[in-house]
């Protein structure tokens, strides 16, 4: 699309959407939201970028290699946290009994493994959304 207003507004608004998505992910244990909603926001910002600037430029920003690595990294973070619980406390995905710091309830650095898992889910959902969209759009253009 060759619309100057659209391009300038997209350049301004995409970073804000992404920062808001990161905020939602990191505050998943304090406020409504979490990995799924925040990841969907970040994925949506990249979809907006793809719609405005085209698939080629979006592929430079978010290549297939990055998509592969980040999509796998989300699940690997999740499983590794679970294995830490398995080793230290005897059952998969144990939280505070396995020695994760509980912190003061209601502050950002609290709740043990929950923020780590939220980051993993956020990475996974964002990369899934953008990968699926790129796959569908590429086919349609051909």
């Amino acid at each position: 699309m060759n619309d100057t207003i659209l391009k300038s507004i997209t350049r301004i608004i995409v970073p804000f959407i992404q920062v808001y998505g990161v905020f939602i992910i990191l505050h998943g244990h304090l406020s409504p939201g979490g990995g799924f909603s925040g990841g969907a926001l970040i994925g949506t910002s990249l979809i907006l970028f793809t719609l405005v600037f085209g698939v080629k430029k979006a592929k430079v920003k978010f290549s297939e290699r990055v998509a592969e690595i980040s999509g796998s990294a989300g699940i690997i973070i999740y499983v590794l946290v679970g294995i830490v619980g398995l080793v230290l406390a005897g059952s998969f995905l144990t939280n505070i009994e396995a020695g994760f710091p509980a912190g003061v309830a209601g502050t950002l650095m609290s709740a043990g493994m929950i923020p780590i898992i939220m980051i993993g889910i956020g990475i996974k959902v964002a990369s899934t959304m953008i990968t699926l969209f790129h796959t569908l759009v590429e086919e349609e253009v051909r």
């Binding site: 799924f36 699926l132 796959t135 569908l136 086919e139 349609e140």
Partner: peptide, 20 residues
């Protein structure tokens, strides 16, 4: 319901790819 939303998204994308 979070599980259900994820399943519906996956189903939609898969059926769209079959339509293509």
């Amino acid at each position: 319901i979070l599980t259900g939303i994820v399943v519906v998204v996956s189903m939609t994308v898969y059926s769209l790819s079959l339509v293509i």
